[in-house]
Amino acid sequence: MSDLALIGMASALASGLCIAIGSIGSAIGEGRALAQALASLAQQPDEGNTITRILFVGMAMVESTAIYCFVVSMILLFANPFWNYLLSQVK
């Protein structure tokens, strides 16, 4: 197996693991945050606006982790620096 094929396989595997773990972690975090917000709303309905605003800010922060994992995955697949290094060594 050539080095180029090995780097391609490793990049695809790392990309898949990155997006899988990142999305699972974000989904669990968002679910727990939403469940806690709904429990808080059930206990204190008068504070609904404050709880909702804080929930949306928290959800955006949790979702940013999945977006970062997606960006890293796309870099590994399409702009991998190891490809360029290996190709420069071959020429």
Results as ranks from 00 to 15, higher is better:
residue 33 A to K: 06
residue 48 G to S: 13
residue 75 I to E: 00
residue 28 I to Q: 14
residue 29 G to C: 06
residue 26 S to Y: 03
residue 48 G to A: 06
residue 70 F to H: 04
residue 4 L to I: 11
residue 34 L to D: 09
residue 2 S to G: 14
residue 63 E to W: 06
residue 56 F to M: 15
residue 52 T to P: 08
residue 1 M to S: 14
residue 5 A to Y: 11
residue 18 C to D: 00
residue 23 S to E: 02
residue 80 N to C: 11
residue 54 I to S: 08
residue 18 C to N: 00
residue 44 Q to D: 15
residue 31 G to W: 02
residue 27 A to Q: 15
residue 59 M to N: 06
residue 58 G to E: 04
residue 83 W to M: 09
residue 39 A to I: 12
residue 54 I to L: 06
residue 84 N to F: 15
residue 4 L to W: 11
residue 2 S to E: 06
residue 76 L to W: 01
residue 23 S to R: 00
residue 31 G to A: 09
residue 2 S to K: 11
residue 28 I to S: 09
residue 59 M to H: 02
residue 56 F to K: 06
residue 89 Q to A: 12
residue 66 A to Y: 01
residue 54 I to W: 03
residue 64 S to N: 06
residue 65 T to G: 10
residue 74 M to A: 05
residue 73 S to T: 04
residue 67 I to M: 08
residue 18 C to T: 08
residue 62 V to W: 00
residue 8 G to L: 07
residue 3 D to E: 12
residue 77 L to A: 09
residue 60 A to K: 08
residue 89 Q to H: 15
residue 67 I to N: 07
residue 16 G to Q: 05
residue 76 L to F: 00
residue 1 M to P: 09
residue 60 A to V: 09
residue 47 E to C: 09
residue 23 S to A: 07
residue 27 A to T: 11
residue 25 G to M: 05
residue 34 L to E: 07
residue 19 I to V: 14
residue 68 Y to E: 07
residue 39 A to M: 12
residue 91 K to M: 14
residue 39 A to W: 12
residue 73 S to K: 01
residue 80 N to K: 11
residue 4 L to F: 13
residue 87 L to A: 13
residue 6 L to K: 13
residue 61 M to W: 07
residue 48 G to H: 07
residue 52 T to F: 08
residue 12 A to K: 08
residue 40 S to W: 05
residue 75 I to D: 02
residue 52 T to K: 10
residue 73 S to Q: 02
residue 22 G to K: 04
residue 65 T to M: 10
residue 64 S to G: 06
residue 21 I to N: 05
residue 76 L to Y: 02
residue 89 Q to K: 14
residue 79 A to Q: 08
residue 80 N to I: 12
residue 31 G to L: 07
residue 53 R to D: 12
residue 63 E to C: 10
residue 65 T to C: 07
residue 57 V to L: 11
residue 33 A to V: 03
residue 33 A to P: 05
residue 80 N to T: 10
residue 12 A to P: 11
residue 28 I to V: 15
residue 72 V to K: 00
residue 48 G to Y: 02
residue 8 G to I: 05
residue 70 F to G: 02
residue 81 P to V: 06
residue 36 Q to R: 15
residue 27 A to H: 13
residue 81 P to D: 03
residue 3 D to I: 10
residue 22 G to C: 05
residue 50 T to G: 12
residue 74 M to E: 03
residue 34 L to P: 03
residue 28 I to F: 06
residue 13 L to R: 11
residue 47 E to W: 10
residue 4 L to A: 12
residue 61 M to F: 14
residue 91 K to R: 15
residue 41 L to A: 13
residue 68 Y to M: 06
residue 4 L to C: 08
